[in-house]
Nucleic acid binder design. Structure first.
Length: 271
DNA sequence: GTCGATGTTATCAA
DNA sequence: TTTGATAACATCGA
């Protein structure tokens, strides 16, 4: 499900409620979502106290007072909620991290693509995936972007989704970014002019910041929807809107596929 | 019942 | 080098 704006929402919702909480137990219903052995995972989490939450790309990094950490990637359908231990559990809840106050952090994931990894202090950045990430979208410069894509024949949409170039952009927001920058998703990276690179470089942080803002939800609202309350989808301009009128020029938006991923663009506005 | 698609990513073959 | 298929898995809609 989530790309950077949604992961940012999860972080913002959980942060104030989670920091300071001490783990008194861990229930694992399905060890498939744990990177290492389940028993070891439980043992190491026990007694840890949360000190902070960070987001890096689409990864959530929970820091403990001990210096160790818990790294979570939600992939397609992963979901984290903080709930009372008494509240009914969803069908696909695989892990429950229990606190002394009687509530628990639950990880549910219908398709089980997501992963939870316990990481020792100092080894956080070396975790596979995290280690290979490119810059955060808010730190992209024209020079950086140019250096990464100017020799590539790959479609710019695919390049935007490469986590090793820019961390956090997926299928939805690559469509939205390219629409905002008025660039055809199929254009080869190497074919972009300096002017187009500039537009792209501006659109990347602007679009993500816009959708983070539109996605702000209260803790209660988030909990109520079992962590599925992503409120920014009504504001999407092209993703999932094939055949509907372009919000800019009114021409019908076109749906197509690149490398197995569907995308939508306006043939009139995006050259 | 079947097929295709779904917001992710690692890996492998051509 | 790069592109596409595949695999992990469950669910939904046509």
């Amino acid at each position: 499900m989530p790309e950077l704006p949604e992961v940012e929402t999860v972080k913002n919702v959980l942060q104030p409620r989670l920091v300071g909480k001490k783990i008194v137990g861990v229930d694992i219903n399905n060890g498939a979502v744990i990177a290492d052995a389940a028993s070891e995972f439980v043992e190491r989490l026990n007694g840890q106290a949360f000190s902070d939450i960070e987001r890096r790309g689409k990864f959530l990094i929970f820091r403990f007072a001990s210096g160790d950490g818990l790294v979570v990637h939600l992939r397609m359908t992963g979901c984290l909620t903080l709930q009372s231990a008494q509240s009914p559990t969803e069908k696909h809840t695989h892990v429950a991290i229990k606190f002394d106050g009687g509530d628990e952090l639950r990880y549910s994931d219908v398709r089980r693509f997501g992963k939870l990894s316990y990481v020792e202090s100092g080894a956080l950045e070396e975790l596979d995936g995290v280690r290979r990430l490119g810059v955060e979208p808010f730190d992209v410069t024209v020079e950086y972007l140019k250096s990464k894509i100017c020799r590539s024949k790959k479609p710019i949409k695919s390049l935007l989704m490469e986590q090793g170039i820019i961390a956090g952009i997926g299928n939805i927001y690559s469509d939205e970014i390219l629409f905002a920058a008025k660039i055809n998703p199929r254009r080869a990276g190497a074919s972009l002019s300096d002017g187009e690179l500039l537009r792209l470089c501006k659109a990347i942080p602007e679009q993500l910041a816009y959708y983070i803002e539109k996605n702000k939800v209260s803790f209660e609202e988030y909990a109520e929807s079992n962590g599925k309350s992503y409120r920014n989808t009504p504001y999407l301009r092209v993703y999932g809107k094939a055949n509907m009128p372009c919000p800019h020029c009114g021409a019908p938006l076109i749906g197509d596929r690149i490398g197995g991923r569907s995308y939508v663009y306006c043939p009139n506005c995006q050259k």
